[in-house]
Design a protein around this nucleic acid. Structure first.
Length: 297
DNA sequence: CACCGTTCCTGACGGC
DNA sequence: TGCCGTCAGGAACGGT
């Protein structure tokens, strides 16, 4: 399941394979893949055709390819969110079509094509305007649908003090807050559990009771685990996540709590517990991460 | 406004 | 063998 490190791996792959190339044609094979492009599949294709892709950017789990507008800087972009099972694949244009191929882009140089493949169709592509970035005033641009999300923990613009203060203003549990992309982006279910294990905090800990030091530990935990995942090319559990060349990451072998129900905690040996939370799973160590007296779900 | 439950989707898997 | 229920989850959306 692609979270920030996996999306970053994809971004790096795209930078190598598509930057500077001009889009020749766009095929939308499944309209659901572009459902967030309100003007429809034909408009989506029309906006991309003939445009030249510039260096890919990312914030949290969103990835975008700015489209050159010579002589000015790009004012539009191809925006991608991989959802649960989305892949962006680059390869020989005449290779076999994947079962869940949703969108295909070819380039004027006749070289490798770019394919959006997505089994569960939670991901999407769209063409969108770029708007000023509230997190870096006077500098960058971000796609309009990305404007409302927070900075991610691996970018310079991330304001740690503002994050800690915003957490304390919330009246919810820490894991809910971590999954709220407006507060901090790029953290999904897997890395939320990993960050909380590293910070030794229970997922239902009320945000308003977090000290500045504890907020700092959560953030450091998120940064550390994401950086480690990036170094090994991203996490993969079921081969649905792959980088742009179709190679899976290996980070799942390094996870400390996620998916490790009843296995010993790597710090204290206590069996990892699994709780139900938001109709999904939360994994934690009962000893390292004691349940708070007052829990917020 | 803040918070939270529901919803979209397909394939793997376990039980019978 | 095959059918069916359950599970996986990001984020938009609507209700409170």
């Amino acid at each position: 399941m692609p979270e920030l490190p996996e999306v970053e791996v994809v971004r790096r792959g795209l930078d190598r394979w598509v930057t500077g190339r001009t889009i020749a044609a766009v095929e939308v094979l499944h309209p659901r893949a572009v459902r967030r492009h309100a003007a429809g599949p034909d408009d989506f294709a029309g906006r991309l055709t003939g445009r030249t892709v510039t260096a890919p950017r990312r914030r949290g789990k969103y990835l975008w390819l700015p489209l050159a507008d010579e002589p000015d800087a790009a004012s539009e972009a191809l925006l991608a969110h991989l959802g649960m099972s989305g892949q962006l694949l680059v390869g020989e244009p005449d290779r076999e079509r994947e079962k869940h191929l949703r969108v295909r882009l070819t380039f004027t140089d006749g070289g490798h094509d770019l394919r959006f493949v997505d089994q569960r169709t939670f991901g999407h592509l769209m063409a969108t305007d770029l708007v000023p970035d509230a997190h870096a005033p006077g500098h960058g641009l971000v796609p309009a649908p990305v404007a409302h999300i927070g900075a991610d923990p691996l970018e310079d613009a991330f304001d740690e003090d503002a994050f800690a203060k915003a957490l304390r203003r919330r009246r919810t549990g820490i894991k809910r807050a971590l999954l709220d992309q407006t507060l901090i982006s790029g953290v999904g279910n897997i890395y939320a559990d990993e960050a909380l294990w590293r910070a030794k905090l229970h997922w239902a800990r009320p945000t308003e009771t977090l000290t500045r030091a504890e907020a700092g530990r959560v953030l450091a935990g998120a940064r550390d685990v994401m950086t480690a995942a990036l170094e090994v090319g991203g996490t993969s559990f079921d081969s649905l996540y792959v980088n742009v060349n179709g190679e899976s990451g290996y980070f799942d072998r390094s996870l400390d709590v996620y998916g490790r129900r009843d296995e010993p905690c790597r710090r204290c040996g206590t069996p990892i517990r699994r709780d139900e939370f938001m109709n999904r799973s939360s994994y934690s160590c009962p000893v390292c991460q004691p349940r708070p007296r007052r829990a917020r779900y």
